[in-house]
Simulated assay, not measured.
Amino acid sequence: MPAPENGFKTALKRGERQIGCWMSLADPYAAELMASTGFDWLVIDGEHAPNDLRSTLAQLQALRGTGVHPVVRLTAGEPWMIKMALDVGAQTLLIPMVETAEQARALVAASRYPPEGIRGVGYAVARAAGFAAIPDYGETADAQICLLVQVETRKGLENLDAILAVEGVDGVFIGPADLAASLGHLAQGDHPEVTAAIDEAITRIVAAGKAAGILVFDLDRAAHFLQLGASFVAVGADMALLANAARSLSAKAKALP
């Protein structure tokens, strides 16, 4: 029995658009709710949300069998973080702040078993292998791992072509907020230099045959990126959806005559 197919990775290879949403509430109950809303993929955010390994595991369990693909964003691309996330069942990883091909190659190695990589061989006791119920997991797991790297600095843009040339990198995600800051335009995501840089980056990613992704809260901008060829686009975040809806309801209720 082989490792489960990563349907998200398969869809990206086919060029099928995947619409997603961020999850920052760090709660399995909220994750289960989000799974019912129709998104193709949901990010369990370990960089800017209060997630640890156990909360990540709980959300993976909540999403299992829902048809929605979980993407785990780690705090950083440390090999031990990658190993633990994969062992608890993540198949798609999103790694922030990748700036060089050397970094990208190290991430690929950390997500692959020897001899191709350095991932620790502990699947006999791992959830990823069904607690030893998937006997061929070790031989088949590598092919189902989807590695997405975030390019979100000036240096990362300068090295984008080299990063794209790294075998094993399945997609590149442009981080618009950090990129704007790196270009000298903090909190100015609509600055012409920033928007031009994002458009050029997505065009280069697609031309290289890799999947391009981004997070954007404006649907018109999302449509623009999809037209450029971006294939995994996130259009919101659970925290923002809840906060905005609650603030709007509160204001409207307090304005009642």
Rank of each mutant, 00 (worst) to 15 (best):
67 G>M: 11
85 A>E: 01
88 V>F: 00
6 N>Q: 02
173 F>S: 06
77 G>A: 13
38 G>R: 11
241 L>F: 03
62 A>Y: 08
254 K>N: 15
223 A>C: 06
12 L>D: 09
219 L>W: 06
244 N>W: 00
197 A>P: 04
221 R>A: 15
84 M>Q: 14
153 T>A: 03
256 L>Y: 12
75 T>F: 15
96 P>F: 10
137 Y>S: 10
186 L>S: 08
178 D>Q: 13
209 G>E: 07
141 A>P: 07
211 A>V: 06
87 D>R: 05
221 R>D: 13
7 G>T: 13
94 L>G: 08
88 V>A: 05
214 I>N: 10
106 A>M: 10
101 A>Y: 03
48 H>S: 10
5 E>C: 13
152 E>I: 00
170 D>V: 06
97 M>L: 12
130 G>N: 07
256 L>E: 15
59 Q>V: 04
225 F>G: 12
172 V>I: 11
233 V>K: 08
199 D>T: 11
152 E>K: 06
122 G>N: 11
159 N>P: 03
7 G>W: 04
27 D>L: 08
54 R>I: 05
107 L>R: 01
132 A>W: 01
119 R>H: 09
100 T>E: 06
62 A>K: 11
90 A>E: 01
187 A>D: 12
185 H>W: 04
151 V>R: 10
201 A>R: 02
178 D>S: 12
222 A>Q: 05
234 A>Y: 06
184 G>P: 08
249 L>P: 00
187 A>W: 09
256 L>R: 12
228 L>E: 11
6 N>K: 04
242 L>C: 11
196 A>M: 04
12 L>M: 13
61 Q>V: 15
94 L>E: 00
17 R>Q: 12
71 V>R: 01
13 K>E: 08
140 T>Y: 03
256 L>P: 05
211 A>P: 10
71 V>Y: 00
19 I>Q: 07
163 I>C: 11
18 Q>Y: 03
138 G>I: 05
180 A>R: 09
195 T>C: 12
100 T>N: 11
226 L>M: 14
176 P>A: 08
26 A>K: 05
160 L>A: 07
151 V>N: 08
170 D>C: 05
85 A>I: 04
229 G>S: 08
248 S>E: 14
